[in-house]
């Protein structure tokens, strides 16, 4: 008998199942399940999509359709240990947000959406983070970085690469 490696751990399955009583059908668990996988693995490979679909009684195409709509869950490879979203929407752009994005990418030696070679940091442009009172700003993991300057942006990249960031 061939045992294939499963991507969803028993803990992930348990976390997904724990949410099941909240919804009248299992399809509504799609987004929560994708988040549970992504929180753990920092990506959702297609094999995980198939397993989520099996768990929820859906066709893999249904889960893949939802996943691909959001352009939020990486599928090819995990995002960096720190995933940073730098706001480029209007209130931040007016206070230098686009320059901060360029600067962070330059300091990290990557293009937007890229990941540093050591896997420490992924930098993505973001639309309004709902923190325009702190423009220009960035969300890195669960931490909001407020009123960024070139100096604080550089310090952030250094810390992330040294494994000190969130």
């Amino acid at each position: 008998m061939i045992t294939t490696q499963r991507i969803l751990t028993p803990e992930m399955v348990a976390s997904i199942e724990a949410l099941a009583p909240r919804y009248p059908n299992r399809r509504a668990l799609t987004l929560p399940a994708l988040h549970i996988v992504n929180d753990e693995l920092r990506y959702v490979p297609y094999e995980a999509v198939v397993e989520v679909a099996q768990l929820l009684g859906l066709a893999p195409a249904e889960v893949q359709d939802t996943l691909s709509f959001y352009q939020f869950f990486p599928q090819d490879k995990p995002s960096g240990e720190t995933r940073a979203w730098v706001c480029r929407s209007i209130s931040c752009a007016l206070r230098g947000g686009e320059e901060i994005l360029d600067h962070i990418c330059h300091a990290a030696g990557i293009d937007p959406y890229g990941t540093t070679a050591d896997g420490a940091l992924t930098v993505e442009p973001a639309e309004c983070l709902g923190a325009c009172d702190f423009a220009p700003c960035m969300l890195a993991g669960k931490t909001l970085h407020k009123n960024l300057t070139k100096e604080s942006a550089e310090a952030f990249v250094r810390d992330a690469r040294a494994g000190k960031s969130s």
């Binding site: 929407s89 209007i90 209130s91 639309e127 309004c128 709902g130 009172d133």
Partner: peptide, 9 residues
């Protein structure tokens, strides 16, 4: 998510 808006937060 409307750019400029953060009162709900």
């Amino acid at each position: 998510s409307e750019p400029g808006t953060f009162n709900n937060r």
